[in-house]
Structures are given as C-alpha cells and as structure tokens.
C-alpha cells in the first residue's frame, strides 16, 4: 500500500509505535516529557540565558548608552552652534547699528560740509557781486566825471565862441577859458 505519510519534513525514521499506545491514536505519551528532550531543553535554555545575560543585554545597554551619548553630544553641539549663531547675530546687529550711526554721521558731516561750501560760495558770490557793483559804480562815476569834464569843456568852448562872436576877439582865448571854467564851477557850486 501507498505510504501516505512519506511526505514533508523529518529526517528521522518513523517512530516505532510504543507498546503502551499499541498503535492507538493519542495517548498519555504526548503529555509526558521525554527525558532527553527535557535535558536538551534545560541545556539550550541555560545557553540562551547565559548569552542574553552576559552578552546581549550588556551589548544592548552599551549601544543605548552610545546612542544616548551621541544624541547628548549632538544636542550640546547644536546648542553651542545656536549660541554661536545668536552671538554672531548680535555682532551683526551691532555692526549694522554702528554702520547706520556711521552713515548718519557721514551724511550729517556731508550736509555740514555742503552747507559750508554753499555759504562760502554765497559769500564769495556776494563779495564778488559787491566788488562788481563797486567797480561799476566807480566806472559810472569816472564816466560821469569824464562826461562832465567833456561837457564843461564843450560848454566853455561854445561859450567862448559865443563870446567872441559877441565881443570880438578882445579877450585872449586862454583867459576866456579860465573865466568860463570859473563860471561853470560857480554854477556847479550854486547847484
């Protein structure tokens, strides 16, 4: 007949049916611990216990401590970096504030310099204008004097001519001129 149970699994030979079970199904055998299995179990459990106790848990603890230290270190480094960044920020802020003050001072100084230059230019312009004006006045006065002299001379000449025509040439020309000038001067003094 066909061996139905020749299938998967075991490397062992088929179990000899024990005398107690006599080939009947189930039985107390299943509930009774086999001594060799019990001994093997105790040995295996003892080995596992030793490995867990002496190696696995200390290694696990060490790993966790290493991880804890690494995290602490990272946190400390991050905190330090944060403080450095804050310090840098303060420095930059101070520098920016200083730069602003400096810029304001520069602007104020420039403004003052500009004002000074402006005032100087205005002063100089005014002085120059005054000088020009004075020069113009002088020129006007000179022109006036020159014109007056010219006018006086022409009037004298004209008067002499007129007098000569009236009285003939009895009077010397130079004397006549002197007389006319005096007269004009007197007229000028009367005015």
């Amino acid at each position: 007949m066909y061996q139905a149970w020749n299938l998967i699994l075991a490397t062992a030979e088929p179990t000899p049916i024990s005398a107690e079970t006599g080939g009947e199904s189930g039985g107390i055998d299943l509930l009774l611990p086999a001594p060799e299995e019990l001994i093997a179990g105790i040995i295996a459990f003892a080995i596992i216990f030793l490995v867990v106790w002496k190696f696995a848990l200390p290694a696990f603890k060490k790993t966790l401590e290493g991880r804890q230290d690494a995290i602490k270190g990272e946190l400390a480094a991050a905190e330090q970096a944060k403080q450095e960044a804050a310090s840098l920020l303060d420095d930059y802020r101070a520098q920016v504030a200083g730069a602003k003050d400096e810029a304001a001072q520069i602007v104020a100084a420039a403004r003052e310099a500009g004002d000074a230059v402006k005032a100087d230019i205005v002063t100089r312009a005014e002085a120059e204008a005054q000088a020009i004006k004075a020069r113009a006045n002088e020129e006007v006065a000179a022109d006036r004097a020159r014109v007056a002299d010219e006018l006086k001379r022409q009037v004298a000449d004209l008067s002499i001519n007129v007098a000569e025509r009236v009285v003939g040439s009895s009077i010397d020309a130079d004397q006549q001129r002197v007389l006319v000038d005096r007269y004009i001067d007197e007229l000028g003094g009367v005015q």
Binding site: Y2, Q3, A4, W5, L7, A10, A12, P14, T15, I17
Partner: peptide, 11 residues
Amino acid sequence: ELILASGECDY
C-alpha cells in the same frame, strides 16, 4: 528521506 510518520492513507 522525507518521512513524516508511518501510516497509510485510504485516499
């Protein structure tokens, strides 16, 4: 040898 247990199956 893949043997699970002895027996026969009346399939």
